[in-house]
Nucleic acid binder design. Sequence first.
DNA 1: TAGATTGTTAATCGATTAACAATC
DNA 2: TAGATTGTTAATCGATTAACAATC
Lengths: 211, 211
Amino acid sequence: MPPFNRQTLERLMQYYHCINEQFVPESRFTVSSARFARCLSLDGTQVRKDLAAIGVKGRRRVGFDVNTVLEAIQRTLGLTQTRQAVVIGAGRLGGAIASYKGFKICGLDIVALFDVNPGKIGLSIAGHVVQPLEQLESIIKDRGIEMGILTVPAGAAQPLADRLVNAGIKAIWNFSAVALTVSEEIIVRHEHLSIGLAQLSYHLKRLENHR
Amino acid sequence: MPPFNRQTLERLMQYYHCINEQFVPESRFTVSSARFARCLSLDGTQVRKDLAAIGVKGRRRVGFDVNTVLEAIQRTLGLTQTRQAVVIGAGRLGGAIASYKGFKICGLDIVALFDVNPGKIGLSIAGHVVQPLEQLESIIKDRGIEMGILTVPAGAAQPLADRLVNAGIKAIWNFSAVALTVSEEIIVRHEHLSIGLAQLSYHLKRLENHR
DNA sequence: TAGATTGTTAATCGATTAACAATC
DNA sequence: TAGATTGTTAATCGATTAACAATC
């Protein structure tokens, strides 16, 4: 199987959500490429190519078996095995992420929440007792945790990223508002909240100008 | 000026952040396309094309004037005029968004927070008193608010989107875990939290397989 | 059979990169 | 002047779409 690029991965995840949110509730067993396409507003050929790429074969005149597609996506994206993650920063965003139900079907298991603020330590957020940062390394090592989710203020992010890497973490999901510099082999994804705003703001401006 | 596609808009926003986070603190007055390129890990030619597209001229042997670039991006993306927004859903995510400082330099002004839960109404979150949903329409109309930010459970999102549209909102920033169907002329951006997870999960899986 | 849908190749389109002249 | 950097055209690459045969 070829390595997939970012866009393909995102499309695969969208098919996955499409199935879980629409097709499963509708108790559909088969779905045509055209129907998938409409969901993500793209071309049916694209869908057939994507599904072919992850090894799913359709049935002519019928479509694709929903379950087969579901399993193939899970296998390809690695959603079958559970991945343990810690959240650093028990603020509002950290709490929102720790309590987000949708991660379950993606195999993400948040096992601990950390914060520097002594006032927060011991509090229970989304079923997790907030831990002091001092225990970060020991918990990561003891439980073999592979992902760290950063939801701390910009100034605190880089040193904490370093600590995560030193403790043996393999991937960082960064919600802090700074770019991180970490060694090559660490997987990093920077979730930049205000990037999405660019699009909305731009289109609102165009709306105004066209009148 | 041509209409810009999603990718270009995202790059423009990244240049903008690059300037604000790196170049302004470093008190740089000029920046070469190569330096911009390194920031976003792309090619210098791309940067020069983007900047040319928004009407910025550089100086040979010197680079681009930081302030000129900043202003051109603000003008292009419409970040100069302030845009008023309401947040629907005063949960953890809603609170995180309402209290996010980074929106200020993007011209986003969150003016009200709403919730259905009577227990939350009257609470102060990030300087905003949580309003009852009944007042949604009147506040939007009275203050001429153009953006709605949805951070409610999946089941509640569609009816609330309809109410926002009826009240005259022009853009919806959707953090709920469902696709919305709204009329053509409404600008919608669906921020799908777990899409990013696909990438992390996929690369973690590959890491395992390669050993 | 007729019709619908896949699977796949070819054509198109756009985005990225390379090359290099212009010039400060 | 020599060197660095822009500005722009051309070349490449990849992704998207069109076309259509295969076939259930």
